[in-house]
Design a protein around this nucleic acid. Structure first.
Lengths: 380, 380
DNA sequence: ACGATTTTCTATATCGATTTAGCAACAAAT
DNA sequence: ATTTGTTGCTAAATCGATATAGAAAATCGT
């Protein structure tokens, strides 16, 4: 049984008992060794040999003084920071922000914090930030929507990066399913002159998605007209990209009956271009976006789009890094990390309609609920 | 001059010279004391007494072995973490994400990282996260768009929190100017039946903004019709809020000629409601949003809105915390922290038009460039 | 030639925890 | 009465840097 000294007995003065915020002070106060307290508070195996009364006293004192072990001291000793580095092209972009929120959900719930950096597709920054992360001893890394080919000394998980590394798990969308639901939807509405906007070449999804579209089109017997395929190139999330792409196409005299855009943002820009050419959406031209960022539902009419469950993807990435981190500690390479393929879903809203629809309604939003399609219908 | 030992001489074996990643190893390699190296690499004042040749050797070795002081050891000793905690209601929401990107810009540039947490307006989470931040020894805190009344032991800066704390600097919008530009714009277009959507009561901007509107309306001699004022209450960033508010209003038989919404998101929801009631925007009803989130420009027609320079506000917040942090080290309370008031700007796009405009154009986007108004005109 | 400086570095305590090896005291077993 | 085993704890060595007081060697002044 430890002999507790009154706080006022302490050489340093009266109110000493009021501030044992370090382990040492707490130990002094309780008349125990720091080691004992640490052992008990951390629930170490050996703590089972400590007498229950002592434990009770320790817990009581810890609570009384609201003792929290110094984070850095602990990190230094245990080599764990309980921090994850997250790399995105840009925080303020809807896609990344939504993935982030999924990541955050899980990490905070598990007691981890995360650092965010935005590289804006500058490869020098990507490398630099990796170094900074390692220097901060993050316990793991989540890389979102970023060209990536590195294995690191800490666990890494990627989201939509399409790398070829064996030991880096990745979360990716099933782009074949995506292409299939979108094309089938448009084809079933009677569209055969479909324009496509491809993503920027530095965006990892671009190539994979386009290959999937080409492959699926072939399988469905749909002919892609190369004249209707455009690619955006600037590094900017702005709808100008889609706007200019479609302006150019229309100026060339092309008149597609539908558009399948690389993402919702350029779909919105494209719609603006259509309006300026006097084309109504969806009466004159149907538009399918990609991602289902929050703004997609805000549009009127709401944007029909291929939904990526971004939040879920972020959450899965977080789960995967944490799993690897714990695994490293316990049984290394037990479950080999794998690629996780996510199924997208077509969200049919107001920007798609059968070809050559009657020219009536400007008030269209309530109408297309009749679309018979395998897809889920979403009110707003 | 230090006598350098060859790495292979070392007791531990051959390739020892290849891994002096700790100060001690580096010291062994150079035949110097750790203290010497630390002093030199940190450019301490006393390092000026160290011979230039030795310094050169130290720098060379540090570069050769890519030496980086262990972050935690350093934090433990210096009581600085070079990390800032950032608290937002929700990362994935456009407003916060944009502020975040401004914060990030400046922090990373200055060698700081940041942790993000989303509290979703749960006051218990707000308190809990503050504790976690303090436990992680963040050097400062940036609190965005969050009810806040605490002073802490570390520097805090708030963005749009409207607290009354003397020593916590805050970045806020000038809501009087905001109300003025918006109301003047609508009034100059001939609107006198203006509907208002107020924000949720738990959002700090709500009350301040509404008071400003009332005050400015009075000054302009504009009569606010209480029957046209609605308030959203759910905690959800979704446009449903604006949608339902306007649905209800229209169902009651009210027919405002314009709407000034609390934010862009509910403006978009409101527009959806107008469409369903067969009202065209802007021909039948004008809409002014607030914030100018990225999606506002994507709409067609583009949303006329009061722009908050969110990114800049984030950047200023970051500048302010860092200033305080450095100040604490040097001359405490030299420049007393202040409230920084930011001027908003009206961005006129396509959702506002003169009252009783001819019913022509569905194709309206290029039109309103003729609006003579003090506001900036934005193409897309 | 001897103390006083200056130059150039070093020893050591510290930051605050974790963790392993092991000590003391007493009970049980032989 | 000695060995063996428990029970209940502690000492001391880390983790890797920083910072202060001061030591050893070289230079200088007289």
């Amino acid at each position: 049984m430890p002999k507790r000294r009154a706080g006022t007995n302490d050489a340093n003065g009266l109110r000493d008992a009021e501030k044992p915020s370090s382990l040492k002070n707490l130990a002094d106060y309780l008349g125990l060794a720091p080691a004992t307290i640490s052992l008990v508070l951390n629930g170490a195996a050996i703590a089972s040999t400590i007498s229950p009364e002592t434990k009770k006293l320790i817990f009581a004192a810890a609570r009384e003084f609201n003792y929290r072990p110094n984070f850095f001291a602990r990190c230094l000793r245990t080599r764990r920071s309980f921090a994850i580095g997250v790399m995105v092209p840009e925080v303020s972009e809807g896609y990344n922000a939504t993935v982030l929120s999924g990541i955050e959900d899980h990490l905070l719930q598990e007691g981890y914090f995360y650092f965010v950096v935005s590289h804006r597709f500058r490869t020098d920054l990507i490398d630099e930030y990796v170094e900074l992360f390692l220097h901060r001893s993050v316990d793991g890394l989540i890389v979102v929507n970023t060209p990536w080919q590195r294995e690191l000394s800490v666990p890494v998980v990627t989201v939509s990066c399409h790398h070829t590394l064996k030991d880096v798990p990745s979360i990716v969308l099933d782009h074949h399913v995506a292409a299939e639901v979108a094309l089938k939807h448009l084809i079933s509405l009677g569209h055969n002159e479909i324009a496509f906007i491809k993503g920027q070449s530095f965006v990892p999804d671009t190539e994979v998605r386009w290959k999937a579209i080409v492959e699926v089109a072939g399988r469905l017997g749909f002919l892609i007209n190369p004249k209707l395929v455009t690619q955006i190139e600037d590094n900017s999330p702005l709808p100008q990209l889609g706007y200019h792409a479609m302006q150019k196409l229309l100026a060339e005299g092309r008149r597609p009956t539908a558009l399948f855009a690389f993402n919702d943002i350029c779909a919105m820009g494209a719609i603006r271009a259509f309006h300026e050419f006097g084309l109504r959406v969806p009466e004159d031209i149907s538009v399918v976006g990609f991602d289902d960022i929050v703004a997609a539902a805000y549009q009127s009419p709401g944007l029909t789009t291929v939904q990526q469950p971004l939040r879920k993807m972020g959450r899965m990435a977080a789960e995967s890094v944490l799993r690897q981190i714990v695994q490293t500690d316990e049984q290394a390479a037990e479950h080999p990390p794998a690629q996780i393929v996510i199924e997208p879903e077509l969200i049919v809203r107001g920007t798609t309609a059968p070809i050559a629809q009657s020219k009536s309604a400007a008030n269209n939003s309530a109408k297309n609920n009749n679309n018979k399609d395998s897809a889920r219908l979403v009110a707003l």
